[in-house]
Amino acid sequence: MKFALNQMGFPRAELAENATLLADVGYDGIEPNLTADGPLWDDEAVDAFSQQTNDLDLSVPAVSTTLHWDRQLSGADKETRSAGIEAAERMIEVADALGAGAVLIVPAVVDQETSYDEAYDRALSAVQTLARTGDEYGVTICIENVWNDFLLSPLEFAEFIDRAGDAGPVGAYFDVGNVRRFGHPEQWIRLLGERIERVHVKDYRTDIDTIDGFTYPLEGDIDWTAVVDTLDEIGYDGWVTAEVPPYRTAPERLPPRLLGDLVHLFSATEYTDR
């Protein structure tokens, strides 16, 4: 396995500072987010970050974003959907420039304005459009399972990926923690199988059973042994990227402590000397 930290957990404000910190700690990768006014919209900033990661021997597993919660690909308003496509296309360009090979996409949000069937049709059309663009760049469109009231079972998730994948490279960005509230991660992993292109990790406390139940790996109720065994069963040996917030106190302590826990969980013997 290779280990990375998503921007959610960055302890410092500047992307470059976090890259240096993660490289010094021993991470394999850094996963930046495309934000509304962040540096990834600027080509020169992306080129500089690419050069830095190369110098640090640090890879970028994927480019992610939270913009699709507002710029919904399934939104009722055409302008909203177009803004979502624009953001995703920029993510693909950035992923290509950084050698990431994947982007994380939230395909839909089901709410009072957007019914499930409308969300499905719009999301499928949007992801197929992005898959065609991704195919041109050699970038896989990775759909993440999130709390968006959409694709609520592994069988439906797999079918959506297969249908969207007719247009180009589409896979799953499987989030272990996001499943635990209403299912068992190891069962999803087994059913998604080779569709899983990237993995996000965090833990979840079932006694809280709300969004506040998310916590750091080893502090919740996920059966990590089952998760690791099932990933091994399907032959997954790729990126494991933590998506957790920094500590409120001494945030710089999160990256090294978290990497140690990931190494412990996933038995990465090649890290024993780090």
Results as ranks from 00 to 15, higher is better:
A48F: 05
D111G: 05
G220E: 00
R257F: 11
A19L: 06
L259S: 04
L152A: 11
V227N: 05
S64H: 04
M1Y: 11
V170N: 02
R257W: 10
T230W: 10
W188Q: 05
I222G: 08
V179M: 03
E252L: 10
L21A: 08
I196E: 00
A95M: 08
T114D: 05
Y173V: 03
A102H: 13
F157L: 04
R195M: 01
F266P: 12
V176C: 02
I85Q: 06
Y216K: 07
A83D: 14
T241Y: 08
R71C: 13
G168R: 04
Y27N: 04
N6A: 15
S82C: 13
Q187E: 15
H264L: 15
R248V: 10
I234S: 11
I211F: 15
H200A: 09
R163M: 09
P107V: 05
S82T: 15
T114R: 10
L40W: 02
L34R: 01
L192A: 00
A158W: 10
Y247I: 04
D209M: 12
V25P: 01
L151H: 13
L58I: 05
D223F: 10
D162A: 14
K202I: 10
E219I: 06
G213T: 06
W147Q: 14
I30S: 08
E136A: 14
L34C: 06
V146D: 13
L15Q: 03
S50Y: 01
Q52V: 01
Q112W: 12
R132V: 10
R90A: 02
L155G: 15
V201Y: 03
D221R: 10
G75I: 02
I141F: 00
A108S: 10
I105M: 01
Y137S: 14
L191M: 11
V263Y: 02
V227E: 05
I30D: 05
G238M: 06
P246S: 00
T269C: 03
L231D: 03
R248Q: 11
D166C: 12
W41L: 02
R248H: 08
T249I: 12
D70E: 15
V60F: 00
D70I: 15
D70M: 14
G260E: 12
N145I: 05
D24K: 15
D28Y: 00
I234K: 09
